[in-house]
Design a protein around this nucleic acid. Sequence first.
DNA 1: AATGAATGAGTCTTCATTCAT
DNA 2: TATGAATGAAGACTCATTCAT
Lengths: 205, 205, 205, 205
Amino acid sequence: MTTAPTAKRRTDPERAQNRRNQVLEAAAVCFARSGFHGASMSEISKQAGMSAGHIYNYFDSKDAIILAFVDREAEYVSGLLRDLATREDPLEAILDDAHIHIDESLDPQPWTVPLEMFAEASRNPVIAAKLRENEEVSRAQLRALVKSGRESRQLPVDDVLLDGRLDTMISYFQGLSIRALYRPNMNRASLVEAFRVAMRALLMT
Amino acid sequence: MTTAPTAKRRTDPERAQNRRNQVLEAAAVCFARSGFHGASMSEISKQAGMSAGHIYNYFDSKDAIILAFVDREAEYVSGLLRDLATREDPLEAILDDAHIHIDESLDPQPWTVPLEMFAEASRNPVIAAKLRENEEVSRAQLRALVKSGRESRQLPVDDVLLDGRLDTMISYFQGLSIRALYRPNMNRASLVEAFRVAMRALLMT
Amino acid sequence: MTTAPTAKRRTDPERAQNRRNQVLEAAAVCFARSGFHGASMSEISKQAGMSAGHIYNYFDSKDAIILAFVDREAEYVSGLLRDLATREDPLEAILDDAHIHIDESLDPQPWTVPLEMFAEASRNPVIAAKLRENEEVSRAQLRALVKSGRESRQLPVDDVLLDGRLDTMISYFQGLSIRALYRPNMNRASLVEAFRVAMRALLMT
Amino acid sequence: MTTAPTAKRRTDPERAQNRRNQVLEAAAVCFARSGFHGASMSEISKQAGMSAGHIYNYFDSKDAIILAFVDREAEYVSGLLRDLATREDPLEAILDDAHIHIDESLDPQPWTVPLEMFAEASRNPVIAAKLRENEEVSRAQLRALVKSGRESRQLPVDDVLLDGRLDTMISYFQGLSIRALYRPNMNRASLVEAFRVAMRALLMT
DNA sequence: AATGAATGAGTCTTCATTCAT
DNA sequence: TATGAATGAAGACTCATTCAT
């Protein structure tokens, strides 16, 4: 039985990592519910099932939690792009999966917090730096994907053109998540149609 | 009767309006610098050059300032759309002015705060309501403009299709303002190119 | 026509006195409505139909208004006692008028403020001194009245006994005004009956 | 295992109760000294020997402190009446203990604050409700006591008559506490004499 | 005489953070 | 490792008072 080592509970690094995650998951819930400023350490500690003071054994400050949280979100986006890259024709896949993208963007839950992140970035330079770093990674993933898709279609792939197309796409995705917040009942079918029109133009021309 | 000309300066409504604007302009600076929550009444009062207590003669609460501020932004957007409507062919004008739109979106100053507004709306229902109301107005303006432009080109103008196209356009515009924040050095020329590609597809097909 | 002198409006002392009264009457309304602390100078100034700043031309401070107000109340009580003294048999008159005394005590309006006065006296020594001074006057009036009534009935009138009877009577009157506040629906008929029982015992035995 | 006895001091409810009492006792001092409005949370916190912020771990607001304080006073009065009820002949006991009642009423310390309570009740509905509730309890205690005393003396005990007598007695008690404030040197002996005269008339006739 | 714009000290309350246990 | 009691530095807001006009 490999469970024996866990019996020794002195500064177990695995346990510590679990505790950190526990806090981050609680933070995700609280940040979504109340925002970065609105969520108090007390609220987070209750959600995490741990005392407020104890959280400081795993994070130096509330800002440190926000930072770790921002990192986590980046991994989620990165995962989505990795999945997309495994598809046979990623460009077509983007258009085919339009309804999935739209549905995800319109679901307000997970996207409330990115909004907080952007707002926070505008006054917290550490967050801004981390956000830019994460962005760089995702952007590189998307770029590779679009580039190879366009190459196989013998479309131009020069860097400058690609940059504009990528930023336009990403802007749209992020903007959509904002609109979902205060216009939750948008007609999905027509959004999907327009999404395809715009994306086809950006990706395949 | 030498005192006559100055004697009638009692309860000057113009002066009061000026004071209100003074506060709102100070608030704009502080909100952009520190966010809605980060900007304290004390900070705003210093920027406005008047005591914190005095601000309450013009606004009932900090929330009232935020609300008035949100209204101001709406008027700015509305003005832009009104200008657009006076153009001979507004749809072509959007494409022609692409570089102007892009430049405005990339200028970080005025757009930092809308971001705050969206974030605030996700938990302050009063702000959310005001934001939706403003949105309704701008949206109606843009819709009328796009509709007549498409009609004169004999393109379909059914409501559902129009909705999707509009929401997609607006999403992109708003998303672009966010990107400008943490990717301030985007290549403008290529953004303009991609903007035209996407907008032409949405507006003229 | 004797109205001529009023045409000359330079520092008219009569006019000033009217203004003072105007403020005091406004203060009475506001104090009854909101208490000494609850009533702001702004509230009083609105009620008095005069700017807040101008009040300071007639009173040095809010405390000075309270003080003047306390004096006014004393005059009211003093007047009641003077009226009583003109009655043929004041002691019988007290018992005969029992229902009037009770009705006045139960009417919450004018008595809310005395309560404030007592409360204020417990922390404002100037008010306390004024209150004691006023009390001394009323007490002397009541004492004279009771003494002569008892003398004509050949009852003992030694000072010590009289003191106890007076303080007991006054305590009851003041206590009654308090009870009226949070027990406004007391049965008046039975109060009158008990009033007579107690007062007859104190006055005529 | 020397640490064992102290190890289990987590979330000690007794300690918490002590802290609450500590705050209430500090509040009693401050309220008596400065009144409900005059006493600041900062003043109370200093008196209680703990930070102002910490008080909010035990009370939701300053109003909650006032409310708890009002309740405490009620218990004190209720206790006095309970003691009285155990006496062989409570009615005689009231007359016998006259000097004790008078002494208690004249002691300014604990009675300063009830005055505040009444004043506060006239504009704070929550306090007013609590005060009425407490009053109901004490009144019922006193009523039962008087009723049985009168029954055993074969005196009338109809409800209406009893109401008048009770309200008159209570009015007197409460009024006495007010007089003590700004007439602290009343002659106690003569007060006791008058007290007996009035009470005997109200209770035994 | 009269205004009301303006001030600044003071109020209650919240919350990230620390520390004894 | 874990607690939660405790702190103190904010924050929004109120109000008596002053002063230029």
